[in-house]
Amino acid sequence: MTKSSADGQMETSSPHWIEWVTGIISSLLVIALLGWISWDIYRYDDAKADFELSVVSVEPASNGFRVNFDIHNVSQTTAATVHVVGTLLSTDGTTDTADVTFDYVAAESHDNGTLFFKSDPQSGTLDLRVGGFTDP
């Protein structure tokens, strides 16, 4: 620490307590960051992307029904151009299909989307699946 005097500035021999606190906090942050990076490297699995899809809600829309869903990438690999396809088999035997494409779904992340159908999905059989994706 530098002290000012009438003769100019001079260095003291011992650091101020705030310098010690700052140094300790900075060291702990660096150690925690290195530990986190090491843990992430240790547990990394180079498997292909894998998804779980779940319907969140079904709502009436102006020209049909809106199906809100959640997509969860359970793997540690990011996927790009993720294509989700929904197929609705109505009780009268008709099939209605809707699809949506996500630009990417990051590793171990959640995202949500919406599909639109003409018939009520609650009165038929709704199947959601990932039709395909690309490696980024």
Score class of each variant (00 low, 15 high):
M1W: 03
T2S: 07
K3Y: 03
S4E: 03
S4F: 04
S4W: 00
S4I: 03
S4G: 07
D7W: 02
D7K: 12
G8T: 07
Q9M: 01
E11I: 03
E11H: 04
T12R: 07
S14C: 09
W17V: 02
I18C: 03
I18F: 03
W20E: 05
T22S: 11
G23D: 01
G23T: 00
I25W: 02
S26G: 14
S27H: 00
L28T: 00
L28K: 04
L29K: 01
A32E: 11
L33V: 04
L33Q: 06
L34R: 04
L34Y: 09
G35T: 09
I37H: 14
I37K: 15
I37Q: 15
S38K: 08
W39I: 08
W39F: 13
D40H: 09
D40C: 05
Y42H: 10
Y42G: 11
R43M: 07
R43S: 04
Y44L: 12
D45V: 15
D45W: 13
D46E: 13
A47E: 14
A49T: 06
D50G: 08
D50S: 10
F51P: 03
F51W: 06
E52W: 15
E52I: 13
L53Q: 10
V56H: 12
S57C: 11
V58A: 02
V58C: 04
E59N: 03
N63T: 07
G64A: 13
G64R: 08
F65T: 07
F65M: 06
F65N: 02
R66Y: 05
N68L: 09
F69H: 10
F69K: 07
D70C: 11
D70N: 12
I71E: 02
V74H: 13
S75K: 09
T77P: 05
A79M: 07
V82M: 05
V84S: 12
V84E: 09
V85W: 08
V85T: 13
V85Q: 15
G86Y: 07
G86A: 08
T87G: 08
L88W: 14
L88Y: 09
L88R: 11
T91S: 13
T94Q: 05
T97S: 15
A98F: 09
A98E: 04
A98P: 07
V100D: 08
V100M: 09
D103K: 03
Y104R: 12
A107C: 11
E108A: 15
E108T: 15
S109G: 14
H110K: 15
H110F: 15
D111G: 07
N112P: 05
G113K: 01
G113A: 05
T114N: 00
F117A: 11
K118E: 03
K118T: 10
S119I: 10
P121M: 10
G124F: 14
T125G: 05
D127L: 14
G132Q: 08
G132K: 09
F133R: 00
F133G: 00
F133N: 01
D135K: 00
P136M: 02
P136N: 10
